[in-house]
Amino acid sequence: MSIYDIEVTTIRGDRHKLSDYAGKVLLIVNTATKCGFAPQFKGLQKLYDEYGERGFTVLGFPSNQFANQEPGNDAEIAEACELNHGVSFPLHAKIDVNGPEAHPLFRRLTKDAPGFLGSKRIKWNFTKFLVDRQGRVVKRFAPTVTPEKIESRIRALL
């Protein structure tokens, strides 16, 4: 199964397959508006603004699995992202990224790009996965890696 076969739901409730993004470079991120890493929303938005017309997009997937840092519903999350962080890149419905209810996308991402010592778990909010134009996971980035530090890798894939 390709990453493009995976179905996702937007934060507004629309369902679609990731095949809608086929041929684009993707940065897939699990997010949380109340996380200490939330200032990274601005860096993610900057990348989206800078490279979107060249075939790049950021896909945000809110999750409340880390210290209850995303307790709101999808409408509240969308509002916080837009008003507090200026987010216009695609946001998706709140999901689990770990455990038995983990979304198929994150099961696939962690299988293709395991973390430290081969761990398949997401350790915290703002773990990032860079996906090339063919839908291959190129690299996994820890939450501490800022969007600015990923920019050169995105440019190389574009």
Rank of each mutant, 00 (worst) to 15 (best):
Y4N: 12
Y4Q: 07
D5W: 10
I6L: 12
T9K: 10
T10Y: 07
R12I: 03
R15V: 13
Y21R: 02
G23P: 02
L26N: 05
L27A: 04
I28V: 14
N30V: 08
T31F: 12
A32I: 00
A32Y: 09
C35N: 13
C35Y: 08
G36N: 03
A38F: 05
Q40S: 07
F41S: 05
G43M: 04
G43E: 07
G43D: 11
L44I: 11
Q45V: 06
K46T: 14
L47V: 06
G52P: 11
E53N: 14
F56H: 03
F56E: 04
T57R: 00
V58K: 03
V58S: 04
G60N: 06
G60M: 03
G60I: 00
S63A: 13
N64R: 01
N64W: 03
N64A: 08
F66N: 07
G72V: 01
N73W: 06
N73K: 12
A80E: 14
A80R: 15
L83Y: 11
N84E: 12
H85Q: 11
V87S: 02
V87K: 04
S88V: 12
P90R: 08
P90I: 07
P90W: 14
H92V: 01
K94N: 06
D96P: 09
V97M: 11
V97Q: 00
N98P: 09
G99S: 08
P100A: 14
A102G: 07
H103F: 02
R108M: 11
L109W: 08
K111N: 09
P114C: 07
G115T: 07
F116H: 10
L117Y: 14
G118F: 00
G118T: 00
S119Q: 07
K120P: 00
W124M: 08
K128V: 06
L130R: 03
L130D: 06
V131W: 02
D132F: 06
G135D: 09
R136D: 12
V138K: 12
V138M: 09
V138S: 05
K139H: 14
P143R: 02
P143L: 00
P147K: 05
E148T: 10
I150F: 03
R153N: 15
R155Q: 15
R155A: 15
R155C: 12
L157V: 13
L158C: 01
L158D: 02
